[in-house]
Simulated scan of single mutants.
Amino acid sequence: MLIIRILLITLSLTLSLLGSNAFAQDINLQPKYGVQPKNDAQKAADEKFLANIDSYYKGDRKKAAADVATRGWQFLRQGNAPDAMKRFNQAWLLDSSNGNALWGMAAFEAGSGKLNESLTLFAEADRIIGDDIDFSVDYAKLLGVIGAQTRNKAMLNDAFTRFARIHEKAPQHTLNLQNWAIMLFYAGNFAEAWKKIKLAEATPRHAELDPRFLTALQNKMPRP
Rank of each mutant, 00 (worst) to 15 (best):
D131C: 06
A91P: 03
S118V: 01
A170Y: 11
G147C: 00
Q78F: 09
K141I: 00
K141V: 03
D132I: 04
S118H: 02
N116R: 09
D83E: 13
V145N: 05
T150V: 03
N98C: 13
F88D: 05
R71G: 06
A164S: 13
G111P: 01
K141D: 05
K48L: 15
Q149P: 00
R165L: 11
D132Q: 10
Q172Y: 14
F135D: 06
A101E: 05
H167K: 15
L115C: 04
N157T: 07
R162K: 07
Q149N: 09
V68K: 00
Y139Q: 06
S136A: 15
N98Q: 15
L76S: 07
A154N: 12
K48P: 00
L102A: 09
D126A: 15
S97N: 14
S112R: 13
P82L: 04
I146P: 03
D46K: 11
V68N: 00
A159P: 01
S97Y: 13
L143C: 07
V145F: 12
L175F: 10
T70R: 14
G99E: 04
L175D: 10
R77H: 09
N52T: 09
K63R: 15
W73F: 15
D60T: 02
D95A: 11
D132W: 03
A81F: 08
R127M: 09
K62I: 08
K169L: 14
N80R: 11
M85L: 10
N80T: 04
I146N: 04
K114S: 11
D132E: 11
A140K: 06
F135V: 03
D83Y: 11
Y139C: 01
R127Y: 10
A148Y: 10
Q149I: 05
P171H: 15
S112L: 12
K153D: 13
F122Y: 15
I53Q: 03
Y57R: 06
G59W: 09
G72V: 01
L121W: 01
T120C: 03
L121D: 00
L142M: 02
N157Y: 07
T150E: 14
D46A: 10
L156S: 12
M85F: 02
E168F: 07
G144V: 02
G79S: 04
K169F: 12
D132Y: 07
L143N: 10
G130L: 05
I133S: 11
Q74C: 04
G111T: 02
I166W: 13
Y139E: 00
H167P: 02
G130S: 08
A69E: 02
T174F: 08
L94P: 01
G113S: 02
T150P: 00
G147Q: 01
G113E: 02
I166H: 10
Q172P: 01
I146E: 03
A107W: 10
E124D: 14
A159Q: 03
L175M: 15
K153Y: 11
I53G: 04
N80F: 10
Y56Q: 12
R162C: 00
G59A: 09
N89E: 02
A81I: 02
L115Y: 12
A81V: 03
A170K: 08
T174E: 06
N100H: 13
A69S: 13
G79I: 01
G104P: 08
K86L: 05
A69L: 04
L50V: 09
W73S: 12
F122I: 06
R61C: 05
D46V: 10
K169T: 10
V68Y: 00
H167M: 13
R71E: 14
L142I: 02
N152E: 07
F122R: 05
G99F: 07
N52L: 09
R87F: 07
S97D: 14
A69D: 04
